[in-house]
Design a protein around this nucleic acid. Structure first.
Length: 257
DNA sequence: ATGGTCGGCAACCGA
């Protein structure tokens, strides 16, 4: 089984990259964030032609998440909390026997702002959602763009960004509560070294060429899946394109059974 | 080298 996550920064602008990648890599599922498309305009046909199903929740201009999969997503949930989420950042379901959660955690802007507090609240809501609805002893995948770098080796300039949004102790504490609950950061488990990033900010000149990036996208899994995980890697192809995306694909492979 | 990011969507906002 092969699972990937990718912040698309517009699924329509990135559609050829995504379809090419699906055809070449043939994953069982691809979790995407920042689709930036309303549901009525989601490019369903392109995925159908490539042999994939899609479940999505979008909104105008911002955010938006989708799960693209070989077999259809079942028991789909499009809201993190009771009632209707004001922002399209969460979609979950089940593919075969496997429960899957796809998240686009708020970026947070800057500590002390309302956006930053919203980010922390959102992560707390996700945590309580897990505690309420899932058992850490059962298989579960939680992946997406968490907008948090955990350790100094997870961003190019830890000193420079210390205490800012994306590298702040309050965010990191919340990330570690996911780990305490029973989720494992699969990339980190398989790759103890630093300098491996999933995001390079467009605003840093030649940031990708100079590897000035951040590791803020994750594939997290509970113990029964961790032991089946054979390989985790980052595919920088979309970031190296002439018309690059700011994030890259993060992929994990598992033994079946 | 007197410039220097994207995408959505129509003037800026968010990342």
């Amino acid at each position: 089984m092969k699972v990937a996550t990718f912040n698309t920064n517009s699924i329509r602008a990135r559609l050829p990259i995504i379809i090419d990648w699906l055809v070449r890599e043939q994953p069982d599922m691809l979790l995407v964030q920042e689709t930036k498309v309303q549901d009525k305009d989601f490019p369903v046909d392109a995925f159908d032609d490539a042999g994939y199903q899609v479940a999505f929740r979008g909104q105008k201009s911002y955010n938006g998440v989708a799960i693209i999969s070989r077999s259809p997503l079942q028991d789909v949930v499009r809201n993190l909390y009771e009632g209707e989420d004001e922002e399209a950042r969460f979609i979950s379901g089940r593919i075969g026997d496997l429960p899957v959660i796809n998240v686009y955690v708020p970026q947070g802007f800057a500590p002390g702002t309302e956006k930053f507090h919203y980010k922390l609240r959102w992560m707390e809501m996700l945590l309580s959602h897990l505690e309420r609805k899932y058992n850490a002893g059962d298989p579960l995948l939680v992946a997406g763009d968490f907008n948090v770098a955990l350790e100094p080796i997870d961003l190019f300039d830890p000193e420079g960004y210390r205490g800012e949004a994306g590298y702040h102790p309050d965010e990191q504490k919340l990330m570690r509560r996911f780990f305490d609950w029973g989720l494992v950061d699969l990339f980190r488990k398989q790759n103890p070294g630093g300098g491996h990033y999933t995001f390079w900010d467009y605003r840093i000149p030649n940031g990708f060429k100079r590897n000035m990036g951040w590791r803020i996208d994750y594939i997290l899994a509970t113990a029964p899946l961790v032991e089946k995980c054979t390989r985790v890697w980052i595919d920088t192809e979309p970031r190296a394109k002439p018309k690059p995306s700011d994030h890259t694909f993060l992929i994990a492979e598992f033994n079946r059974g």
